[in-house]
Design a protein around this nucleic acid. Structure first.
Lengths: 131, 131
DNA sequence: CTACGTGCAAACTATTTGCCTACAA
DNA sequence: TTGTAGGCAAATAGTTTGCACGTAG
């Protein structure tokens, strides 16, 4: 077997080829299974861990009680529409050039941050109220 | 019985009289128990729920897998020191006047946000490296 | 009597770990 | 043979719910 094992490789390929940017372990597993790749939840879990350790993936908190993973490169923050659950991206520069700078100036050394914005996306505002 | 029941009232009194601003259910329970107030975990859980529903408390995500509660009034964001676990507060205005404004301008209607900054507090930077 | 608050235990959800087998070097 | 990957099931951790009892109104 090559240096990259079956499931981690499949996860990276799946994520590379899809539009979605944040995946729960369950979503990854289902998607793999659907494309004919057998994978146990725990195997996908371990794959995510390994990829996170290697710096390929980054764990993202969306405050829904589940772990989410995205590629480390192109790191960004997230907005979630509370109606359609659409997750959209916010460039991190917004954070870094405003809050981050102010916090750093206060003497706190920042090593990471998690920003989640909840609300209604443009589309759902037009359609109607929150379900 | 008055309109405020035993445990919710004790929770509010405890939180009002303490310096700490974010409490897990377990911390609340332990603290109550220590001061001679018997309270089951589930009772404290239900008290937190009720107080949250009433708008007295707000649930805060600190991404440690536990639910945290703080008073709704004086809402703010948080910085956590990854060495000493100190949680300090950041005024929300930092968020609202920078990122929030930019996001709103993009058409997303913000109803809430969660910002957690991880790093090293001033004190721990001086003492040494991360454990 | 009726409603509500609480304790206790069980159910749930998501994560994490242990162990065993199979396969590749 | 030896180490690693992966499947399966059990263990954790935290939260949530069901139920029964006691008590205030």
């Amino acid at each position: 077997m090559g240096r990259i094992s079956r499931i981690p490789q499949a996860v990276v390929e799946l994520m590379s080829g899809a539009k979605r940017d944040c995946w729960t372990i369950e979503e990854l597993q289902n998607s793999l299974n659907s494309s004919g790749i057998a994978a146990d939840f725990s195997s996908v879990f371990r794959a995510s861990q390994k990829l996170e350790d290697q710096g390929v993936l980054r764990r993202v908190e969306l405050n829904d009680g589940k772990a989410h993973f995205e590629f480390t490169h192109g790191h960004h923050d997230h907005m979630i529409c509370q109606k359609c659950q659409l997750v959209s991206q916010i460039p991190c520069e917004f954070f870094e050039t405003s809050i981050g700078e102010a916090v750093s100036r206060s003497g706190f050394k920042i090593t990471g941050h998690s920003l989640v914005i909840e609300g209604l996306c443009k589309n759902c505002q037009n359609i109607g109220a929150v379900k």
